[in-house]
Write a protein that binds this DNA or RNA. Sequence first.
DNA 1: TTGCCATAGTTCTAATAGATATATGCTTAA
DNA 2: TTAAGCATATATCTATTAGAACTATGGCAA
Lengths: 193, 193
Amino acid sequence: MEVLLGLLTIEPMSGYDLGQVIRDSVGHFWNESYGQIYPNLKRLAEAGQVTAQTERQKGKPERHVYSITKKGRKRLAAWLEVAPQPEIPRNELLLKLFFGAQISPKISIQHVERMVESERAFLREFKRIELEEIAKSEQYPDAPYWKMAARFGQLELEAHQRWGEETLDELRKIAKKQRKHTEKRKKKSHAEK
Amino acid sequence: MEVLLGLLTIEPMSGYDLGQVIRDSVGHFWNESYGQIYPNLKRLAEAGQVTAQTERQKGKPERHVYSITKKGRKRLAAWLEVAPQPEIPRNELLLKLFFGAQISPKISIQHVERMVESERAFLREFKRIELEEIAKSEQYPDAPYWKMAARFGQLELEAHQRWGEETLDELRKIAKKQRKHTEKRKKKSHAEK
DNA sequence: TTGCCATAGTTCTAATAGATATATGCTTAA
DNA sequence: TTAAGCATATATCTATTAGAACTATGGCAA
C-alpha cells in the first residue's frame, strides 16, 4: 500500500501507470497486483491521503489520476521510519533442488540452467539501468537511493550466477557418476543374460 | 504442500516435527506455517499420499506421525520435474531505502545496519551447517543437494553483506553532506537574526 | 467485421502467514 | 499447593496477496 504513496511523491499517476511503474522501477524487489492497487487507491482516497482527478483521454479510456496529499506524505514518512520486516522466503527452485535425489540430475540441471539464463538477461538490464541512473542523478534527490536499491539487485544476481555455475558443475558430476553407475549396471545385467 | 511430501521421504514425522524441520533445514529458502501444515497433511492423507499413525507419548500429548506412501512419492516426483516458478519479491528494506530521500539518512542507516547485523549471525550459522553436512554426506544420497541449497544461502548472504557495507558508506556520505548543509543553513539563519 | 492490442479498471478465487486458541504434561517458583 | 512457564501438539481464524478472469474504451490490421 505504501509503495503507492511513495511513487506518487515522484509524480501524479493513474492506477494503471502505478502498475507499470512498480513493475519497471521496483519490480526486482517489490510486487503489487492490480487486485491491490485499485482497492488501495480507493482506500487512500477515502482517508484523504491521495486525491483523484478524472481525465478524459483521446483514443483511450477515461482515467483517474491520483496525487499524494500532505496527509499522505505524513503517512509515508511515518511508515518509512518503522523497522522493515524480513522477506518471507519462498524459492521453489531451491526446494526442488533440495529434494533432487528423488529425480534425475538432468532435470535439476535444466531447472538451474533456466534460472541462470533468465537472470543473465536481468543482469544486462541492470547494466542499462545503471547508465540511465547516472544520467538522471542530477535531476532527482531520490536517485542515489534508487541506485543503492538497484545495486542490491545487481549483487544478488551476480551471486546467483556464481551459484548457478558452481551448482551446474556439481550436478554434471553427479550425472556423470550416475551414468557410469548405470552403465555398470547395464553391463552386469547383460552378462547375466 | 509438496515440501511436506519431500521431508517425509527422509523419515516419518508429526505435523509439529515437520514445522520444526522446515524451519531448521529449508527455512532459509522456504516457509510453511502451521496454518497450512495441518490442513495439508489432512488433505494428503485423504488423497492416500501419506498415512497417519497415532502415537501415545509419555509426558507429552498424543501425536500423529505421517509417512509418505508410494502414491505420495509419485506425486512428489512429478512435481519436482515441473519448471519452478520464480520467487515473488517483497523486500521491505529495499522499498524503504528506495524512498529514503523522504526521511533522514540516519533512519536508513539504522535499517541497513540492522539487516547487516542479523544476517551476519545467519552467515555464522551456515558455516556451522557446512561442517555438519560434510560429516553427513556419506549417510544420505540427498546430502550433495542439501549442500547446494545451503551454498545458495551462503552466497546470497555474502552478497548482502557486501551490499550492506557499500550502502552504509554511501548513506554516511549523504548524511555528512546533509549535516554540512544543515550547519550552513544554521549559520545563515543565525546571521540573519 | 472480427481479432488483437494497449489503456484502464473491477471482481474473484486460492493460497498463505501468523495470531490466537486449545490440549497434554512436566517442572519450578511463589 | 497452585500458578506460571515451557515444550510438545494441534486447530481455527483473519488479513493480505497474486493473478486469473472479466469488463470497458478505442484504434488498427487482416
